[in-house]
Design a protein around this nucleic acid. Sequence first.
DNA 1: TCCTTAGTTCAAAGATTATTGAACAATTGA
DNA 2: TCAATTGTTCAATAATCTTTGAACTAAGGA
Lengths: 117, 117
Amino acid sequence: MTLPHPTTDQISLPLVLSVLGDPTRLAIVAHLAHREGGKGRMNCSQFLALGSKTNLSYHLAKLREAGVTRTEVVGTQRFLTLRREDLDQRFPGLLDSIVAGVEFAAIPKIEESVEMA
Amino acid sequence: MTLPHPTTDQISLPLVLSVLGDPTRLAIVAHLAHREGGKGRMNCSQFLALGSKTNLSYHLAKLREAGVTRTEVVGTQRFLTLRREDLDQRFPGLLDSIVAGVEFAAIPKIEESVEMA
DNA sequence: TCCTTAGTTCAAAGATTATTGAACAATTGA
DNA sequence: TCAATTGTTCAATAATCTTTGAACTAAGGA
């Protein structure tokens, strides 16, 4: 099963900016960026410190629809990643300058991914 | 007379992003960036192709309040400039990557500044 | 099969934002 | 002084966006 994602050239700058203009979504992106290349993918539940389950579903859909994140469906879980390469290609330097500007200390901590046996 | 502007350290990333997420405001910033260092300052009326006078007043106030632009009052006119140095200091690379991502061909042309005798 | 886990969808309510016209203020030039 | 220019403010409307709870689906494990 695959969720709808925009193609790289369908990613719109105003949409990306307005989507990242929301503090909850910016925090999600900051967490994803902070773990890039690291300890595995993140699922939606790990972001529960940032909002209710229903509300997260809403914000994560916004991020996906804007082309900021990719959502992989695995069983009952959705694994989230930043669309780093697509964003870098479409808007060079944008993601890095945004992530660098986030006051990481000011955003809620989230649950570490639980390594399963 | 001086209008209220945030100080450099009061400029907030989410606010800048959401303010620039609006197509009208992004177009204004693209025009300002396109003329940086060039043929003089721009006043509000030059942006009338982007919206009604009242509506522009609203959008230009948003840009100023977010710290994106500086508004100088000279007589009955307001001259607009990008707060390039403040933005570069606070969020290095952000303004450049945003301006570079604007499809300039797709935004309405505006009136050239009329050189006065 | 039954229960739990993970997350979505829907409809309603609440909160912000954007757009408009009418009225206004201030400066400038005739 | 009078009129034109430049732009703001206000109140109302329209349009969007966010948040919530209830109900739901789908996959996995006991």
